[in-house]
Design a protein around this nucleic acid. Structure first.
Length: 824
RNA sequence: GGGCAAGUGGCGGAAUGGCAGACGCGCUGGACUUAGAAUCCAGUGGGGUAACCCGUCAGAGUUCAAAUCUCUGCUUGCCCACCA
């Protein structure tokens, strides 16, 4: 009876050995090609489950494949360690955020090691280390110097539950992305990063990111939301004021029947001089009623409400006098906060006009010569021909857009303009567990940046974390500072940075994680950047991935990094792992943890299952039956290979001479498996589910040969090759077998098996013979037959002859070694 | 409402114009066993004794040949949703 495989002992022993030998540290500069593979750095929430494991297993398999294919691989790991959950733990359980975070990091690091991942731990970072956030502050100051970081008062998203402001990207359907609370609007002085200055490049360069999923690029395009149009002015009748509007459909200008403005529009006070007291009071009440409402209530009502101001605007070209309305559907923060209402050609304006009985004037018809359809039953938003539009009548929409823009420009009341949906990135957070913003407010000098030599501005211990107000603002020793410029009394900024600030550049810190002089070394950055393969969840499609692109372009413009100005060459989103069809969550009690899975099934089986069950981008389901198949595979692999253990290492590349078909089939199975692993890696498809299926076929071929020809040398060849083949996917059993075969060095430092052409080419194949597209015969034939030979063979087959019924085929189609289709 | 992706056995999936269902799970039968577990072997889309017929969401089309390409519809998933 052969020795059984003890996965617990083997897995632990090799993890310790790899760690002490440091075999996965990224190599110093060599002539070989580099490959930087990176998984999104995790938030240290406490425990890893198999959903996380899917992400890290995929990244690890890629890193290990590329290493064995001869690349210098950089595969680092770190911790996105600042953030709200640590503070919530402090509020709920009185634990210091630093202590909570550190213990979670220790636990999750243990779990990543338990998974047998091949990280270069010498480069590990945690963003809550002063050594890290010092450079956060340094980068903030550089952004400040270049006018990218700035402070202003603005209406912002305020989460009443988390008691902090949020970036636009963190508000989802009007709710806080973390706690799902309805977000309120408040006017506060806050720090912003001018990401809008990069809007055009962030948009244009998406076209170059062919290694990114198309849907992610589309989401970023939509988020940036570029639209080209015209800004021009309406005069207000009876007041020396103008109202600017932005439109993408200036061709519909003659169809404007009202002017719609946001309740917060700055023109409102001026209008009060020309309207009745009653109107003014009503407007105030309307604005009041909107002001207290959350963004969701204001905008998702679908119900368009509004109020006539009593004032009129003059259409600059038609000279028509149109009423000015205050509405809830015009956004104060987008464009100019005012729009021309063209109900005939805009759905929103149409709804509003119908509701309030405003006139609808059609100025576009579908084709030249077609009549205005009166009355319109819906807005007609397509381009067409202009009617009733003065000099522009008869023009196409496209031509009219140019011509009207030119006229407005010539009259000096308008110009072409581009607007973005993207807003500047709000980074202030009124929270404790984050990077302090390195700014001091001095009564005499105003806003003063902390000098570089005074960095880091340390996060002080012992702040009162209660969920009430800003913790840092309640620490006098922190708040009170002297002005770096004049030395006088000053106050420190007490807001901390959005944690997405840290994660926008961490991939550069891995390159020189202990550099005390700079956030990263330019030479290291030139060698390793950009990230060749980035792996993470699709939930970051706009947030982290847009911010990182923005930061990297800023760095590139300063010449702090060479090469391309995009940080991530290729991006892969792994799918979720469900458990029995449901999302894993603590409240459902269906979380499958790493520790219990490693203990019960072994890590190699877990890794294989996660890669095998679906293609990596698909949602997969964790089932107890499913992983049992991979446990069986591991045991079967062991039983089939261990009899070939011996003290002398075999030459794994020497292909034995064989005689029968089963033997050739096994040699071919080895080659096919190797080719699959290499193809899935090089194609960047990473569908290792099919590769692992080839490993199954390889074991099946071994079993078959063991029955038919138990003395075949092909069995030893396959056994000795298998550790190499499975090493990237099931690294522990691969190493154990490799060492039992007498090799002195790690299998993970070997080159991957190169399939030999002679084993791959089958000498016999099945020729499928069709008559009129239906299969009538399968013939075993030698490979490489000519068309004439195949035809003769097919015509000799009785089943084919029966179908032909004495007729001659009119035509035939031949696919070499595969198929012959006869048409009668 | 708009955009994108997908729909294949009991289940996860394979096949990207050329043998539909590789591989695994589950299930059925057999071997081994006092018995079970484990392991090994055989079978497993539907109909039919069989020859054969049917079959990749539904319907149409292109093609010698369609799960794969085109159109229409249905369903599911994800994203966006007053951005003028």
């Amino acid at each position: 009876m052969a020795e059984a495989y003890d996965f617990r002992a083997v897995e632990r022993a090799w993890q310790e050995r790899w760690e002490s030998d440091r075999i996965f540290d990224a190599p110093a500069h060599t002539a070989r090609e580099k490959y930087y593979v990176l998984e999104m750095l995790p938030y240290p929430s406490g425990d890893l489950h198999v959903g996380h494991a899917k992400n890290y297993t995929l990244g690890d398999a890629i890193a290990r494949m590329m290493r064995m294919l001869g690349y210098d691989v950089l595969h680092p790991m770190g911790w996105d360690a600042f953030g709200l959950p640590a503070e919530n733990a402090a509020i709920q359980r009185g634990i210091d955020p630093a202590t909570w975070t550190r213990s979670n990091i220790a636990n999750m690091e243990r779990q990543l090691r338990l998974m047998g991942t091949s990280y270069d731990w010498s480069r590990e970072i945690a963003t809550c280390d002063p050594e890290y956030y010092r450079w956060n502050q340094w980068l903030f100051l550089r952004l400040y110097e270049h006018g990218i970081a700035y402070r202003r008062e603005a209406p912002v998203n305020w989460c009443p539950r988390d008691r902090t402001v949020l970036a636009n990207e963190q508000v989802i359907d009007g709710r806080c992305w973390r706690c799902n609370t309805l977000v309120e609007r408040r006017n506060l002085a806050q720090w912003f990063l001018k990401i809008t200055a990069y809007a055009d490049r962030l948009l244009a360069d998406l076209d170059r990111l062919s290694g990114w999923p198309e849907r992610t690029r589309t989401m970023q395009r939509n988020w940036i939301g570029r639209s080209e149009g015209v800004v021009f002015s309406f005069c207000v009748d009876g007041v020396d004021e103008k109202i600017d509007v932005f439109t993408t459909r200036v061709d519909t200008l003659f169809g404007a029947t009202f002017l719609a403005i946001a309740a917060e529009h700055p023109i409102v006070p001026a209008l009060k001089s020309v309207i009745s007291k009653k109107h003014a009071a009503e407007i105030d009440a309307f604005a009041e009623s909107l002001g207290s409402k959350s963004e969701l209530e204001r905008t998702s009502l679908m119900e368009k409400s509004g109020l006539f101001t009593g004032a009129y605007a003059i259409n600059p070209l038609s000279r028509e006098r149109i009423p000015i309305w205050v509405t809830n559907y015009v956004l104060a923060e987008y464009g100019t906060g005012a729009v021309m209402g063209v109900p005939a050609h805009d759905e929103r304006d149409f709804d509003f006009a119908r509701k309030h009985g405003l006139p609808i004037a059609q100025v576009i018809v579908p084709h030249e010569g077609s009549e205005a359809a009166a009355p319109l039953t819906q807005a007609c938003v397509e381009d067409g021909r202009l009617i009733a539009s003065g000099d522009f009548t008869g023009m196409s929409s496209a031509r009219a857009r140019e011509a009207v823009a030119e006229r407005l420009t010539a009259l000096d009341i308008g110009r072409k303009s581009v607007n973005y949906r993207l807003r500047d990135w709000l980074i202030s957070r009124q929270r404790y567990w984050g990077t302090p913003i390195p700014i001091v407010f001095c009564d005499r000098c105003g806003e003063v940046p902390v000098p570089d030599e005074q960095l880091p501005v340390l996060l002080p211990p012992g702040a009162p974390i209660t969920g009430e107000g800003s913790p840092l603002a309640q620490l006098p020793d922190f708040v009170n500072a002297s002005c770096p410029r004049c030395g006088g009394a000053a106050r420190r900024e007490t807001d901390t940075m959005d944690t997405f600030f840290e994660s926008s550049w961490y991939y550069l810190r891995y390159l020189s994680p202990h550099d005390a002089r700079a956030p990263w070394d330019r030479e290291d950055a030139t060698r390793w950047m950009n990230v060749d393969q980035y792996i993470g969840g699709a939930e970051h499609a706009v947030l982290h991935l847009l911010y990182s692109r923005f930061f990297y372009k800023f760095f590139h413009d300063r010449d702090w990094v060479g090469g391309d100005d995009e940080p991530f060459a290729r991006l892969f989103h792994q799918g979720f792992v469900l458990h029995d069809g449901e999302k894993m969550s603590k409240s459902r009690g269906n979380v499958v943890g790493i520790d219990e899975t490693a203990e019960r099934n072994g890590v190699d089986a877990m890794r294989l299952f996660l890669l095998y069950v679906t293609p990596p981008e698909d949602t997969s389901d964790w089932t107890a039956e499913g992983i049992s198949g991979r446990v069986r595979f591991i045991n079967r692999l062991w039983r089939l290979c261990i009899p070939f253990a011996g003290p002398e290492p075999p030459d794994v590349h020497a292909i034995p001479a064989v005689e029968n078909a089963d033997e050739r089939a096994l040699l071919r199975a080895v080659g096919i498996a190797a080719r699959s692993a290499v193809d899935e890696t090089h194609s960047r498809r990473f569908h290792f589910n099919t590769t692992i299926a080839k490993f199954d076929e390889l074991l099946n071929a071994m079993s078959a040969l063991l029955r038919s020809t138990p003395e075949s040398p092909a069995l030893g060849y396959a056994a000795h090759a298998l550790p190499l083949l499975v090493a990237p996917f099931a690294p522990h059993i691969a190493e154990e077998l490799w060492q039992r075969f007498g090799h002195a060095t790690s299998v993970h430092l070997e080159r991957y098996l190169v399939p030999h052409e002679s084993t791959l080419a089958p000498e016999e194949t099945t020729l499928v013979v069709q008559v009129n597209g239906k299969i009538r015969a399968r013939l075993a034939v030698p490979a490489g037959m000519t068309q004439a030979e195949a035809l003769a063979l097919a015509l000799a087959d009785p089943r084919v002859r029966a179908q032909l019924d004495g007729k001659e085929p009119r035509k035939h189609y031949y696919v070499a070694d595969k198929l012959l289709n006869l048409v009668v």
